[in-house]
């Protein structure tokens, strides 16, 4: 394992069901993500990409194997500690944005900052700064319903950065965007990795993601390998 690895999966296996209905979603998967790196995982539908992402993010436990974030094994942690890991060490970008509909753009980001312990004006100022950084400084008081898909995804990216997590996990972040907006979001994440010293693991069907990724992996039948060009 490299010293710069912020996310490390070793021999991770995930099995759903038992007996004849058993499905091996991940089989002895190894993956390493380093600071400043964008790793894209591609593969057919149902290949286990989202399973990989949720295990990496501490949302479910692997059947076997080790998952480390910043060198800390998380695979055996109880649920409340896994929640702490997600709150402090991981940022999520979702396919459907998943913004809180009753909160404005800035409140969505501020909520995540406050969840991490900051309060009051500093939290608000930081939220505004993040939104300006993703190019939404002029629409931060809008509710999600008043934002376009691309704008909502920018808010989602800002929220993922709010807790200063080193690991950003992105699940099909461009799936609901047109090609122009998709390029913008991918470029934004590339810039974040470069400028802020984060690492991004993204799972996607979008072949254009390869342009922005340092490595592109292929996941099929539970096995992960380097994607051939």
């Amino acid at each position: 394992m490299s010293d710069d690895a912020i996310l490390n999966l070793r021999a991770v296996t995930k099995v759903y069901g038992t007996g004849e209905s058993e499905v091996r979603a991940l089989d002895q998967v190894d993956l390493e993500l380093q600071i400043g790196e964008v790793v894209a995982v591609m593969g057919p539908s149902g290949a286990g990409k989202t399973t990989l992402l949720t295990i990496a993010g501490g949302l479910q436990r692997p059947t076997a194997g080790v998952v480390e974030i910043n060198g800390r094994p998380i695979q055996d942690l109880p649920q409340n500690e896994l929640a702490t890991v997600r709150r402090e060490l991981v940022g999520f970008v979702f396919q459907s944005f998943n913004l809180l509909t009753a909160l404005t753009a800035v409140e969505n980001v501020q909520y995540m900052i406050e969840l991490d312990g900051a309060r009051g004006r500093p939290a608000l100022e930081r939220a505004k700064e993040l939104l300006r950084m993703v190019g939404l400084g002029h629409r931060m008081d809008r509710l999600p319903k008043d934002l376009s898909g691309g704008e909502q995804q920018r808010v989602c990216v800002a929220r993922a950065l709010a807790n200063n997590a080193s690991v950003i996990l992105a699940d099909e972040p461009t799936a609901n965007l047109d090609s122009q907006r998709a390029k913008e979001i991918m470029g934004l994440m590339r810039a974040i990795v470069r400028d802020m010293g984060r690492g991004v693991l993204l799972v996607t069907h979008d072949l254009r993601a390869r342009e922005f990724a340092d490595r592109t992996l292929w996941l099929e039948d539970g096995h992960l390998g380097l994607m051939e060009s």
Binding site: G57, L59, N80, A83, T84, V85, R86, R87, E88, V90, F92, F94, N98, L100, T101, M112, L115, R159
Partner: peptide, 18 residues
């Protein structure tokens, strides 16, 4: 109606008590 959003809160690491 907001069940999905409560799921988001959980995914983001909001403690159950919150």
């Amino acid at each position: 109606e907001k069940e999905r959003e409560f799921g988001v809160l959980k995914a983001l690491g909001t403690p159950n008590r919150s």
